[in-house]
Design a protein around this nucleic acid. Structure first.
Length: 876
DNA sequence: CGATCCCGCCACATT
DNA sequence: AATGTGGCGGGATCG
């Protein structure tokens, strides 16, 4: 056994440490004996696993006892000690067990022995880094906890972090599925991309700051920055964590935090992140305000996360000496480059699929596991904003020294900037009814991060009032990207797409959108076509009914590994990897921040579908063109068309796939939707639109989640909706004015009437009443699939979440009750938001969550959603 | 004394 | 109501 173990274990040193530590720790204690440290070996061990496992087993075995004792504590201790010393007395019950007594000694030990890091090592030692796909590694929390001899609570700490990296996924209650590191690089890549968007500037800033002590940089920023005025908003703004926390539960904040923390490293040039900076950045609220306690708590959590990451060999503790002094920091020692890792994903994934849906939330593990598709996730955290705590607290900042303060200020400002983007949105939202609009996208594989959901707000609906953007565009754009690499692109005038990045940021707050093509590595698997999909296709697309398309996509999703897909993948991989950016979304940063997404196979698909739908709907002939222009990488029209073909769900023909491949090859074209607030509501559309696109989308989509559009009831009346099929270039973004260029669609939803908000599914357009989009697709109508996504209106009650729609459902519209009409109280506001929005299936969850936020939380909904998602996979 | 961070209470979610 | 999750922060321990 030993031999066996060693080989396996070797990698991790942990074990080794244990013994050592023990001895050390003991210092205090009894000197007596050297306890043999390791007696572990002796007994037990039933554990087949690794050698270490054995040790662990031992430990664990002991530990339980230990625990009890501890509880009794002192009483025992003495005993223990004595025992340790040598007597195996019977006295101790436990003792009897074995020599382990000695182990007890260990116990005493210092905390180190009990450290989360060590525990994590033990935990990790139990599972292979690269499990075979076939083997199913389920993890029972209770079991592990008892084995490792710790309370379950600790296991949650570990698992939550691991989950954030997709090393495990929650399958069911008390059950997690071990995926190993197969997708780690992909996950990291995704995080890096997401991080670039979210924190690129910040990190740059900080880094500079560090290096250049001068504040100039900071000042500069300041100038640019809007300043904290927004603070109020800020509170709300909190993206993920904070908001979440504030609002409702923070669910999963640890997970989110973990991802963000990792993003920081990946974005950092030096790969070194100090705890304080990380804490500041992670506190969404603007820093300024950060109160000490909050900061402290954040740091504590970071230690927890850092311990796990350290155990994973991704980071190591270091110290950074700055002007002020030495500060604790962590250095990333994990992989830095993520070449087209996507391949990996595929590779391993085929069968296993490990990561499929990570979502914890998803309760339907099975499917997930099986399918893997996941790519989307949503995250619970979507929180949107919520005032709550934040507001109250506000802040008292307390810097230590004047200097620090300054720096802090800068930092905070920087942060604020980042926040600003988000906030912008919020601002808009601010008006009560609106919320931030976020959109998310997901990226393939890991999409969790990527996506971001926006909170329910996904589509912000807006109230008429809001229209204006609160933020100045210029600011945003500048501020955000300034130094970042990514930024460079932007500067060019092009959209901000980064080559690698999937997302785009738009400056203006109010809009958003997203887009389209996603391709992604991950996607490829699933969707061959994905990538870029033709946007144009609107005309053509009609051919396939969305539903069908969707289904198809779903299928793929389900079996990513499917042979068919395979073909494409290869091709895609090649091309895609590099260039692509699969998705482009535009999101307010904030949105991104909350990266959580869960991936459920279904959801992914659905979302994609939705997107497509949007495209379709929106798309107007013109749009496509626009998109092309805008997007740096236009898709080939041909391809697009092809896509349209693909749409056919029915036809699985390889040919299509091929096509898709081709598409894949092409860079992505980002498609965006832009919505303008002005109208009173915002719409999001994907640029692509053609129906055909849809099909594509479906496949691709998976990665994307598209939301639906929501229209404010009031707005509806007039409805001038604008859709800009055209893509807005990120940078160019959308100017408000731009729409004009874009094609605008007008919907008339008379029926809907003002109060009722309408949701439109991606698919087609939507409203029944609505006049379909302009010329765009005649066909569509036919196929039209509007799906309404389920909407959730909380208050409204229109609930239709249920409908899984995505998959094949035709469109459904929902009307919401008028939530809007209701006055807004703060509380009410939220609801309103919800009401206002639609979400795509994927999004749905979020929304729900949001609702919860308010007060009640209804996770239920979320769970429901999740379920739905899952189910959706198989569309019906 | 500051850095770490264990421990477990307790709120909220889910069953 | 029971049980699962997990935020959170007091306060112990480390260095």
């Amino acid at each position: 056994e030993n031999i066996f173990d060693r080989s396996g274990m070797a990698p991790k040193t942990p074990i080794k440490n244990e013994p050592v530590d023990l001895s050390k720790q003991k210092g205090c204690t009894p000197e007596r004996n050297p306890i043999t440290p390791v007696k572990l070996v002796d007994r037990p061990q039933p554990d087949p696993w690794t050698p270490t496992a054995n040790l662990k087993m031992l430990v664990s075995a002991a530990s339980p006892d230990m625990r009890d004792r501890e509880k009794k504590k002192e009483l025992f201790r003495p005993i223990e000690n004595s025992e340790q010393s040598h007597t195996p007395d019977l006295l101790q019950y436990d003792m009897v067990d074995d020599c382990t007594v000695d182990e007890f000694e260990k116990q005493r030990p210092s905390r180190k022995q009990k450290s989360l890091g060590l525990l994590c090592q033990k935990f990790l030692a139990r599972y292979p880094s690269y499990p075979l796909s076939t083997e199913k590694n389920t993890i029972s929390l209770d079991e592990v906890a008892s084995i490792l001899g710790v309370e379950r609570r600790r296991i949650y700490d570990i698992v939550n972090v691991l989950e954030s990296l997709h090393l495990v996924s929650r399958v069911a209650k008390n059950q997690y599925c071990w995926h190993g590191r197969h997708n780690l690089s992909q996950t990291l890549k995704t995080l890096q991309e997401a991080g670039e968007l979210q924190y690129g500037e910040l990190m740059t800033f900080f880094q500079h700051k560090e290096q250049d002590s001068d504040y100039k940089f900071g000042e500069r920023k300041k100038e640019t920055i809007p300043d904290s005025q927004e603070r109020p908003l800020l509170d709300f703004s909190e993206p993920d964590c904070s908001s979440a926390s504030a609002n409702s539960r923070k669910d999963k904040s640890l997970r989110i935090m973990s991802q963000k923390f990792v993003m920081l490293f990946l974005v950092s040039k030096t790969k070194i992140v100090t705890l304080d900076i990380a804490a500041k950045i992670l506190i969404e609220e603007t820093q300024d305000t950060v109160d000490h306690s909050k900061f402290k708590t954040k740091v504590r959590r970071l230690y927890d996360i850092a311990n796990v990451l350290t155990s994973l060999g991704l980071i190591k503790k270091v110290h950074v000496t700055e002007e002020r002094g030495r500060k604790p920091a962590f250095k990333w020692i994990g992989p830095v480059e993520f070449p087209g890792k996507t391949d990996e994903l595929r590779g391993h994934s085929p069968t296993s699929d490990p990561l499929p849906g990570m979502q914890r939330g998803a309760r339907a593990p099975h499917k997930i596991c099986a399918t893997r598709k996941q790519r989307f996730t949503r995250h619970a955290s979507f929180n949107s904003t919520q005032p709550c705590e934040g507001t109250r607290r506000k802040v008292s900042s307390e810097p230590n020294s004047p200097r620090q303060e300054r720096q802090d200020e800068y930092c905070s400002k920087m942060i604020n900037l980042a926040a600003v983007c988000r906030q912008k949105i919020e601002e808009d939202t601010r008006n009560p009814s609106v919320t931030s609009p976020l959109s998310l996208l997901q990226v393939p594989g890991d999409s969790e991060f990527c996506v971001n959901p926006l909170p329910q707000a996904v589509f912000p609906v807006v109230q008429a009032d809001v229209p204006n953007l609160s933020l100045p565009n210029g600011i945003n754009s500048q501020a955000l990207h300034p130094s970042t690499p990514a930024a460079s692109q932007t500067e060019n005038g092009k959209p901000t797409l980064l080559p690698n990045q999937p997302f785009l940021c738009f400056p203006s707050s109010s809009l958003f959108m997203l887009c389209g093509s996603l391709q992604e590595n991950n996607l490829r698997e699933t969707l061959p076509t994905t990538g870029d999909m033709g946007n144009k296709r609107a005309e053509t697309q009609a051919t396939v009914p969305p539903a069908a398309c969707q289904k198809r996509s779903s299928h793929k999703c389900a079996s990513p590994s499917a042979p068919v897909d395979d073909q494409e993948p290869a091709a895609k991989k090649q091309t895609m990897e590099e260039s692509d950016v699969p998705l482009s979304l535009v999101v307010p940063k904030k949105l991104f921040e909350s990266p959580k997404a869960e991936s459920t196979p279904g959801s992914g698909c659905t979302s994609a579908a939705h997107l497509e739908a949007f495209h379709l709907d929106l798309t107007s002939p013109a749009a496509p063109e626009a998109t092309h222009k805008e997007s740096a990488k236009p898709l080939d029209s041909q391809e697009q068309e092809k896509w349209s073909q693909n749409k056919d769900p029915d036809e699985p023909s390889p040919g299509k796939e091929h096509i898709s491949k081709e598409n894949a090859n092409q860079p992505l074209l980002p498609q965006y939707l832009y919505v303008q607030p002005t109208a009173g509501f915002n719409f999001l559309f994907s640029a692509n639109q053609a129906p055909g696109a849809i099909s594509l989308a479906a496949s691709q989509l998976p990665s994307l989640s598209v939301p639906c559009v929501v229209v404010p009831s009031a707005a509806l009346a007039s409805f001038p909706l604008v859709c800009s099929p055209t893509v807005t270039s990120p940078l160019s973004p959308v100017p408000d004015g731009t729409f004009s260029t874009t094609t605008s669609m007008n919907f008339s939803m008379s029926g809907l009437a003002s109060t009722t908000p309408v949701f439109i599914g991606t698919t087609a357009v939507v409203t029944p009443k609505v006049s379909p989009a302009p010329s765009a697709d005649p066909q569509q109508p036919a196929h039209p699939t509007l799906h309404l996504s389920p909407v959730l209106a909380s208050s409204c009650g229109a609930v239709k979440l249920d409908s899984p729609v995505c998959m094949g459902h035709p469109v459904t519209l929902l009307k919401l009750q008028q939530p809007l009409s209701t006055p807004l109280t703060p509380k009410t506001i939220r609801p309103a938001r919800h009401e206002a929005f639609f979400k795509t299936p994927g999004s749905l969850g979020d929304p729900v969550a949001w609702k919860k936020n308010e007060g009640n939380q209804t996770r239920n909904a979320s769970s429901v959603q999740r379920r739905l998602e899952i189910s959706s996979t198989s569309p019906d």
